[in-house]
């Protein structure tokens, strides 16, 4: 099993979900349509040949002034095949919302809360979406590019 085979199988099963495949420095990134993220993640975890059992990282990125402004980036890893894969979804600048992957990997719990805290991205279906690193009354989302460094 290698990354090219993984990408082929994914494109076979989710032909419209994968918008773009890119590769840089030996890493493969799939740009995914937001609505198809959750079923794709379930497939990647549960399919015995894919076996991406680890959600290594989940974070947001702000690409101001480009639209779509936000991206949520998922890093997956398989302990069986020892492969790493990156998934990205692009979200609009106003009211960015995406399905939560907590039901697939519980590791997403705090990471999604952090993305919400720092960027204001809402994760639909998260059991307890509230600020994690800043005080509950904090105004604004610090990691956005239009938020000043010194606050």
């Amino acid at each position: 099993m290698d990354l090219a085979t993984v990408v082929d199988r994914v494109k076979q099963k989710f032909s419209e979900a994968v918008l773009e495949v890119s590769s840089f420095r030996g890493e493969t990134t799939l740009q995914v349509r937001p609505g198809d993220l959750l079923p794709l993640c379930r497939f990647l975890r549960d399919d015995p040949e894919m076996a991406f059992d680890f959600l290594i990282d989940l974070c947001g990125v702000d690409y101001l002034p480009r639209e779509p402004r936000f991206q949520v980036v998922y890093h997956l890893c398989s302990t069986r095949t020892r492969l790493r894969l990156r998934l990205k979804v692009s979200l609009p600048g106003t009211d960015p919302k995406i399905a939560s992957v907590f039901s697939v990997w519980k590791a997403a719990d705090w990471m999604e809360r952090e993305a919400f805290d720092m960027y204001g991205i809402t994760f639909a279906g998260h059991p307890d979406l509230r600020r994690i690193l800043l005080t509950p009354e904090w105004q604004g989302y610090p990691l956005r590019k239009d938020y000043p460094l010194r606050g």
């Binding site: 059992d53 680890f54 959600l55 290594i56 302990t79 990997w105 519980k106 590791a107």
Partner: peptide, 9 residues
């Protein structure tokens, strides 16, 4: 357990 540990990252 091991599966829970992996699922929790």
């Amino acid at each position: 357990s091991a599966e829970e540990a992996v699922n929790w990252g």
